[in-house]
Amino acid sequence: MTAINRDDVAHLAQLAHIQMTDAELDRMAGELAVIVDSVKSVSEVAGQDVPATSHPIPLSNVLREDVVGHVLTAEQALSGAPDSADGKFKVPAILEED
């Protein structure tokens, strides 16, 4: 496994939609390198034959009746939105204008 570097962090920050300054990228690259180094031992112990656990107590087929249940009104759903119009969330432009 390779160490995490500043370019990786810049790319990951973009994927995670977090704008970062140069100083933040420098600092985070250093911190994450230490953390990644300390967690990589997990791959040493996890052999091919070990099944993965995604959920501590496996439950299957957790279903409910197919009827309208507990729902928020449009007004409730929009109550915490930074911007809304006509009963809908209002978002900035999706595409960049040229």
């Binding site: 496994m1 967690v39 990589k40 997990v42 791959s43 112990v45 996890a46 052999g47 070990v50 099944p51 993965a52 656990t53 995604s54 501590p56």
Partner: peptide, 17 residues
């Protein structure tokens, strides 16, 4: 990285259980 990190961690979870 998924298999090496997240996948391995989930296996460790089994070992701990």
């Amino acid at each position: 990285y998924y298999d090496a990190y997240y996948g391995s961690a989930q296996k460790v979870r089994t070992l701990i259980q």
